[in-house]
């Protein structure tokens, strides 16, 4: 359950960012989670909610944004995004795809009220 460790780091980071930026109430947290990380969204959300209960972040709802794997053919430029690497080009048949992304763990937005 790497979701536990990720949720703990996430709550800590959100708290620090909210403090740095003087945000009193965080209502939503947008986090990009690369699909290669094999994170179960509902597990991460549940652990996060459990962790922030009774803290200043109690009202923050987690919004998970999937980070798909990007596979690109350098020969013909064909590109695809999916949950896992695609290693052969569906257009020209080349087997030299360049794979990127899918490993992100980034806080992309916080929502607050004013």
């Amino acid at each position: 359950m790497h979701e536990t460790a990720i949720a703990e780091s996430l709550a800590g980071r959100v708290e620090a960012i909210a403090r740095e930026r003087g945000l009193k109430r965080v209502t939503a947290v947008g986090v990009r989670v690369g699909m290669l990380r094999a994170v179960v969204d509902s597990t991460l959300t549940a652990i996060y909610a459990e962790l922030v209960r009774g803290t200043d972040l109690e009202d923050s709802r987690l919004e998970i944004l999937p980070g798909r794997v990007r596979s690109r053919c350098p020969e013909c430029g064909w590109e695809t995004r999916s949950s896992r690497p695609v290693l052969s080009c569906a257009r020209c048949g080349s087997g030299k795809m360049v794979v990127s992304g899918g490993r992100e763990l980034l806080i992309e937005f916080l929502e607050t009220e004013e």
Partner: peptide
């Protein structure tokens, strides 16, 4: 109250 979205790119696993 209006919801305000603040965009950022912060590493979760920074530490």
């Amino acid at each position: 109250k209006n919801a305000v979205r603040i965009k950022m790119k912060e590493e979760v696993l920074r530490s």
